[in-house]
Design a protein around this nucleic acid. Structure first.
Lengths: 239, 239
DNA sequence: GGCACTCACATACTGAAGGTACGTACTCAG
DNA sequence: CTGAGTACGTACCTTCAGTATGTGAGTGCC
């Protein structure tokens, strides 16, 4: 029973060795198995969800054993986190790419970002891994840390562009608040789009609605309407 | 070893028997244990999350055995769903209560609903069970069905009030879209509020931001600006 | 008022799945 | 060439959701 790497080395590892030429062969093999684990895990997590995807299935799909998995990851949750980061990273890149070339008109930039996000959110892996399972598996704290430096950063960027369009002086906290609101709006809208019977029509409706909201914003900005800072003073009129 | 109902019947069931006078004693006992299970499950799900809360802990807390649990519920998920429904129902009632007496001014109604929701969303049980774990445990489909007839219904009600304030003719789908967007915005904002270092200040910021967005709406409505229906016709200007 | 019947549980067990301890072949520096 | 460490594989343990089955207290019926 000593035919250890008979199948795996031939059918999976060998074709992917020249990924990083500078590194040693062992490191290349190691990186390859790690990628294979993440690949298979992403697929199974997307298809069946976190709880229903067993580690046995994952390691079988990657043609390794649990020993390999626990060598690369501290546990199932860490593996999920690796998958999560990659999906998030890809999504963030896609949105960021769509944002290029809109440095001049922040409103166009916002709409471009919205369209890109509505595309991303229709990917099953993003829906399942990031939106649906992310908060529960990672816990809201870690979930938020991850979002903070990827998709949410994009939204914050857009929001800042739009807000500064009217020469506004808003503190960081208030900008974050606006970004949170729009981020939540887009996530929810995105979910509605992707789970709709007619995603295209739903996406159009979302664009229309958010476009309208942005129009209201624009009108206020152009008319130099400031934020109702009265809220900051006291709570005099609590019914 | 035949002291079966020695502890349970004395310490827990007896004091709650006269809950439903008309029903038989057996039914009263049964309802009492079911409630106890839901109570304990709600607590443990809130404190430790769905996965980390074991059925053994739950039945121990309710002073029953797994036989009782599986008599009342088909499984762990069904128990969670019962908890979910109650938490959602309570939240919905709280918001609905705050909405009363604002039939005249839809804008005030919206703000009142917002404030009530921001209160609700700070309850740990709502955060954990509905927002954080709900989508993952129930699956997005069932999650949405539940929301549809409770909290989301409230938001839809508010949105319709606001939209019809300007004598608008919007189809149901478009109203639903607006409601989805605001619902997502409020959920996300609520999460930000409840996980903030200073929830009160965060709540004020959210109120300010959403109030501002509503102001933009109001301006558009009062100036008879219609929705950009051009989106519905074609996609002529896709960059 | 006795009696069968059923409901509302309790008890004991099973299988699956995440995690761990330890062994081993292969690689690479020297 | 050789010792050391890496990158796994193997076997086992533990926890936990779910199941099969038993049983006594209520309840309807006569």
């Amino acid at each position: 029973m000593l035919r250890r790497m008979s199948k795996s080395s031939v059918s999976r590892l060998v074709p992917k060795v020249p990924s990083v030429p500078g590194a040693s062969r062992r490191a290349a093999y190691s990186a390859s198995t790690k990628r294979a684990l993440i690949d298979v895990a992403e697929q199974l997590f997307t298809d069946h969800g976190y709880a229903a995807a067993s580690l046995d299935q994952i390691v079988a799909g990657a043609q390794v054993t649990k020993g390999a998995l626990y060598h690369h990851f501290s546990g199932k949750q860490a593996l999920f986190e690796a998958v999560f980061e990659r999906v998030e990273s890809d999504a963030s890149k896609a949105v960021k790419k769509a944002l290029k070339g809109h440095r001049d008109d922040p409103w166009e930039k916002a709409l471009a970002g919205l369209r890109a996000f509505l595309e991303v959110v229709q990917e099953p892996r993003y829906r399942r891994i990031v939106i649906q399972e992310g908060p529960a598996v990672l816990g809201y704290e870690r979930y938020r840390e991850q979002e903070e430096r990827s998709t949410f950063a994009n939204v914050l960027d857009i929001v800042k562009s739009v807000l500064t369009a009217g020469d506004w002086e808003l503190d960081e906290a208030m900008q974050q608040t606006f970004a949170r609101i729009f981020f939540g709006a887009m996530s929810s809208a995105g979910e509605a789009v992707s789970s709709s019977d007619d995603p295209i029509a739903a996406a159009v409706r979302v664009e229309t609605a958010i476009g309208f909201i942005l129009s209201g914003f624009q009108v206020l900005v152009e008319n130099d309407v400031t934020l109702p800072n009265a809220f900051h003073e006291d709570d005099s009129a609590t019914s």
